[in-house]
């Protein structure tokens, strides 16, 4: 079975995010003062072939911890869904 894992990596809340700050300031100067904070991150989409959803999920967490995320400064969220209708 094929699964698609969507991974969002962001800087930890305690770490300064100069990119996010710059975007926030730009938005404020455009008048969007109600935007209180901006955090920038990376989005990654992994297509995984696995026997079960649990195995796909385990693998996705594993690659996050080993390569995709640097735990010193980053954190991540992960969502997984089965690929429907075969390959496009």
């Amino acid at each position: 079975m094929e699964f698609v894992a969507n991974i969002v990596v962001t800087l930890k809340p305690s770490v300064l995010d100069p990119q996010g700050n710059t975007v926030k300031e730009a938005l404020h100067s455009m008048g969007y003062n109600s935007v209180e904070d901006v955090r920038m991150g990376k989005f990654m989409e992994l297509t995984i072939s696995a026997d079960s959803e649990q195995k796909a999920l385990d693998l996705a967490h594993d690659v996050c911890n080993r390569l995709l995320v640097n735990p010193v400064i980053e954190t991540y969220t992960l969502s997984l869904k089965a690929q429907t209708g075969g390959a496009v």
Partner: peptide, 15 residues
Amino acid sequence: ECGLLPGAMLRNTSL
């Protein structure tokens, strides 16, 4: 990154 030294690098504040 390989943990031989502690800490991490971020983008320069000037971006």
